[in-house]
């Protein structure tokens, strides 16, 4: 499968010296993109910092409105998906296409589980009026607990920040599922090998970043 003009493997574009150079260039581009993602989320973390530092009592009161069990479960699910991505890359580096395929499917499933859990969390919040801004109206009784006690000053701001941060993170998970569906399909058709697995590497880097964002969101929103 070599290019007859350059004596390079078929996946190497003519403007690269080698497969290695092409891989490094793609990966560096991915890291640059990840930094823009970090900056996107840092704006929201700054908003979080301002409101938390001015109204710590609101943050402490309303972090209990979020279910740490579901949040913790989702943390473990995302950690597991990061692990399967790393395992998949390990497998394809050894030339094991089936091992890669299995790990990519597992990653896709874990991402789906994350969104299903998030769906149940959001439904409970919407049902009891724990909503952002003007829509904030805690009401209803569940398991003997009166949600009206969550009606504290600056509660609307807390839930604005909660929904924007977890919403944009959830959107990234959705995009990640699309990416993993795409590379899983490619992997099934045998597109990747120990010599060429750049899309797997870069989608993996993206996925790890989505995991890292959640590593910070979980304690900051659910626990403290």
């Amino acid at each position: 499968m070599a290019n007859p003009h350059t004596n390079q493997p078929a996946h190497v574009k003519h403007y690269f010296v080698s497969s290695e150079q092409q891989f490094d260039a793609a990966k560096m581009g991915m890291w640059l993109f990840l930094v823009t993602e970090i900056l996107l989320f840092s704006g929201m973390f700054v908003a979080y910092t301002i409101y938390r530092s001015w109204h710590p009592e609101t943050w402490m009161a309303l972090s209990t409105a979020l279910d740490w069990k579901l949040g913790g479960l989702n943390t473990l699910v995302l950690l597991a998906s990061s692990f399967t991505v790393a395992m998949g890359i390990n497998q394809i580096q050894r030339g094991n296409q089936k091992g890669l395929l299995l790990n990519l499917i597992l990653t896709f499933v874990f991402a789906g589980v994350f969104l299903v859990v998030k769906y149940f969390e959001y439904s409970a919040k919407i049902e009891h009026g724990l909503l952002p801004g003007a829509a904030f109206d805690p009401h209803g009784i569940s398991h003997g607990f009166d949600y009206a006690t969550y009606n504290v000053p600056y509660g609307p701001q807390f839930f604005s920040i909660y929904f924007v941060m977890t919403g944009i993170h959830g959107f990234h998970v959705l995009v990640g599922m699309g990416l993993f569906a795409w590379i899983t399909w490619k992997a099934k058709n045998g597109a990747f090998s120990a010599e060429y697995y750049t899309p797997v590497e870069n989608c993996g880097l993206y996925w790890h970043l989505v995991d890292i964002i959640w590593i910070f969101l979980f304690p900051l929103l659910y626990l403290i």
Binding site: L32, V35, F45, S82, F83, A86, G204, H208, D211
Partner: peptide, 26 residues
């Protein structure tokens, strides 16, 4: 996650410096 799963520990140093600039901004 960054060092092992994302393999930055063994990666080209330029990627580490890109991340460092981002972290510095934050």
């Amino acid at each position: 996650v960054v060092m092992i799963f994302m393999a930055l520990k063994w990666d080209n140093r330029v990627n580490a410096s890109i991340l460092a600039v981002g972290a510095l901004c934050v």
